[in-house]
């Protein structure tokens, strides 16, 4: 049972890696719904930089961190598809490690499966932050 769950997790992770690593380079390069609404009233060049007019997007400021993977690329890699794919793979693994690890650490450790018990509030003796 538990082995099958980990098998499912592994296949799901593989699908996520393929989506972020390969399919992501076929994504639309157009600004998303939020960004395009904030650019309303401005003219934008082919690079996506605001060139004139008057719109909220003009107030955008530099990101505090940036970093080597900023904008889903990789510093030093000029091939767009490769850079996007690599940063996507790193992002999927990092997100899985952080979320999965965090949830694993705070999970209930009573040793009982939740299936089968009623939906009344169960007194959780392990509720202390640990």
């Amino acid at each position: 049972m538990r082995k099958r769950t980990w098998g499912f997790i592994a296949s799901g992770l593989l699908v996520s890696l393929l989506l972020a690593g390969v399919v992501s380079s076929f994504a639309s390069a157009d600004p998303d719904g939020l960004e395009s609404a904030l650019r309303e009233g401005c003219t934008v060049d082919a690079e996506g930089t605001v060139t004139g007019g008057d719109c909220p997007a003009q107030r955008e400021e530099e990101h505090e961190i940036g970093g080597p993977l900023a904008d889903y690329g990789v510093t030093g890699i000029t091939d767009d598809a490769l850079a996007t794919g690599l940063s996507g793979v790193v992002g999927v693994l990092l997100t899985f490690a952080l979320a999965g690890g965090g949830f694993w650490l705070v999970r209930r450790r009573t040793g009982q499966q939740p299936t089968g018990d009623g939906d009344a509030a169960q007194p959780t003796s392990t509720a202390g932050v640990g």
């Binding site: 997790i9 996520s16 076929f26 996007t84 996507g88 992002g91 999965g100 694993w104 959780t124």
Partner: peptide
Amino acid sequence: GRQHLDDRLAPMAGLVAAFIFAVQMINFPI
């Protein structure tokens, strides 16, 4: 959330987060 997080849900939730990260990268035309 802790009350629901058991040995089965914790890795599943990690996968859900990773999957959402992956799919968010794929902008589609509207």
